[in-house]
């Protein structure tokens, strides 16, 4: 993998992690597991350390794969939420 591909994967990972925040947060609020205000409070606290993770991990495949899995699982959970 070239340096440019490596960085593209990691940058995409950041965007996807944000998407995962939105989807999993919406799912949790939809099921009333957490109030929307508490979710935003918690999301704000952990956002920066989580979003930078794709640039800290060694493998670019992991930096893209984990956020992608989180987004897809979040979308599925939200879709099939009762």
């Amino acid at each position: 993998m070239t340096t440019s591909q490596d960085r593209t994967c990691r940058s995409m990972g950041i965007v996807l992690l944000w998407g995962a925040f939105v989807l999993w947060g919406s799912f949790a609020c939809d099921l009333a597991l957490v109030s929307s205000r508490s979710y935003r409070f918690l999301a704000t606290i952990i956002a920066a350390p989580v979003l930078i993770w794709p640039f800290l991990t060694k493998k670019p495949q992991l930096a893209l794969g984990v956020p992608l899995a989180l987004v897809l699982s979040g979308a599925l959970m939200l879709h099939f939420a009762p």
């Binding site: 925040f21 939105v22 947060g25 939809d30 704000t44």
Partner: peptide, 19 residues
């Protein structure tokens, strides 16, 4: 200031999707 700023824009930074 960055963290509290992000919190104040929480509605926009972390929107909620409801199906």
């Amino acid at each position: 200031i960055t963290w509290t700023g992000l919190f104040l824009l929480g509605n926009i930074a972390f929107p909620l999707i409801s199906h």
